[in-house]
Amino acid sequence: MLSDNWQQVISTFEEMKLKSEILRGIRALGYDQPTPIQQRATVAILSRRDAVIQIPRLEERTVTYIAALLQQIETRDKSCQAIIIVHSKDLCYAIQDLINVAGQYMQFSCLVCTGGIPMRKDIEKLRNEGQQIIIGTPGLLIGLMVDRKFDFNRVKTIIIEDSCIMFNSNFRTQAFDIIYQLPKSAQRVLMTTATTFTLADIKNKITKNTIIVLNDVHMSDGLQLYYAVVEKDDQKLNALCEIYKEVNIQKSVIFCDNSERVDWLADKLATLFENVAVYSMHSLTRQSERHEIVKSFWESKAALIVTTDCFSSVLAFHPVDYSVHFDLPYKKEEYHDRLCCCGAYGSPGVAINILVKGQLHDLGVLERYYRLQSQELLVTNYFYQ
């Protein structure tokens, strides 16, 4: 396993000597001062050495490397200087939104390369305008690199977002191909939610003289975990309604395991809760609609969004009050992302699993894996604080 080896701490962004334009930008994101982990991690990236950095909370993690990347960008040089490799198309756009806010007082260019947009448009932007930061999924980035008409030889920094997922998925081979095609001198930064034996092995393959910065905050800090048990699956909706009768709904995310289930539940809730905005989003939702759905959800005073695990990482940028798991996730990693949508790692939040009796074992497997413990909500008292 990995061991922390970086002790340097700088307690303010000013002392990190970030450009004044960047200071204004990250303040616009709500970061007047760096968090404890950012006080070490941002400095580690600014050192330009290879690094493995564990920051479980998505927005905190993203702001950490954005601040360092913008500091290192040479604005007069229009060639690509940084590449961020991301496993999710929607997450690419969410990261770009944060970069644009943080860098709004600077002159720089940032391109997202994902599916759904003809590659020729990306090629035209690279040829005609130059893009100093490129964010993309592995397949599209490989496609751009195959066209040798672009100069990637000036790339200084490679960020691999959520390395645990990247190197434990179908993207593994493509991610390696991208890294090996970029300059050997480029800084390689593995951002991660957790440390694993796999990540320790990956670190040895693609980084050298590596800084390791680990977060010592446990997932359960600040998080209240509950579960409610029903006899049959068709009783879950009644249980959910009983829970919401006792809760002052402000913002809540409800996770289902497939798109049909999402649409069905969203329709039911829209009928039952007339004074609450109900949104739904899943893999069949058109790309052009997704950004507007998420934006409307955040802008609503009281809202529910019913979704699948495809969007847990995007929703985790701004944690909500409650995360309800109408269905358990298929993968252990998805449970982590769900919990990050409602707090965890020091931020307050409530997560509730609604189970049929046969799923108690499955919940136990997840809780042992993440060292968590939840309390049962009795049928006569579905929710209490």
Score class of each variant (00 low, 15 high):
4 D>W: 06
8 Q>G: 14
17 K>Q: 07
17 K>L: 13
21 E>F: 03
21 E>T: 02
35 T>S: 11
36 P>H: 03
39 Q>N: 10
44 A>D: 01
49 R>L: 01
50 D>P: 00
54 Q>P: 03
54 Q>I: 15
55 I>K: 02
55 I>C: 04
55 I>M: 05
64 T>N: 02
71 Q>F: 00
84 I>L: 03
97 D>F: 06
103 G>T: 09
104 Q>R: 10
106 M>W: 01
107 Q>T: 04
110 C>S: 14
113 C>I: 01
114 T>H: 00
125 K>N: 02
126 L>H: 07
129 E>R: 01
134 I>Y: 05
135 I>A: 03
144 L>D: 01
150 F>M: 13
151 D>Y: 11
154 R>K: 15
157 T>Q: 08
160 I>W: 00
164 C>V: 06
171 F>Y: 02
172 R>M: 00
173 T>S: 13
186 A>C: 03
187 Q>A: 11
195 T>V: 09
196 T>L: 06
197 F>N: 06
197 F>W: 05
199 L>V: 06
203 K>H: 05
212 I>W: 00
220 S>T: 07
223 L>Q: 04
224 Q>H: 15
225 L>R: 06
227 Y>R: 11
234 D>C: 02
236 K>W: 05
239 A>G: 12
240 L>S: 04
242 E>H: 05
254 I>C: 06
258 N>R: 12
261 R>E: 06
263 D>V: 12
267 D>C: 15
271 T>C: 13
271 T>H: 14
273 F>R: 14
280 S>I: 09
286 R>S: 10
296 S>A: 14
300 S>V: 10
300 S>E: 14
302 A>H: 12
304 L>G: 06
309 D>S: 01
309 D>M: 02
312 S>Q: 03
313 S>N: 02
319 P>N: 15
320 V>T: 08
321 D>L: 08
327 D>I: 15
335 Y>R: 15
335 Y>H: 14
336 H>P: 12
339 L>K: 11
343 G>V: 02
345 Y>M: 14
346 G>W: 12
348 P>W: 13
348 P>S: 12
351 A>L: 11
351 A>Y: 01
356 V>T: 08
357 K>P: 09
359 Q>E: 14
359 Q>F: 11
366 L>K: 12
366 L>R: 14
372 L>S: 08
384 Y>V: 04
385 Q>D: 13
385 Q>H: 09
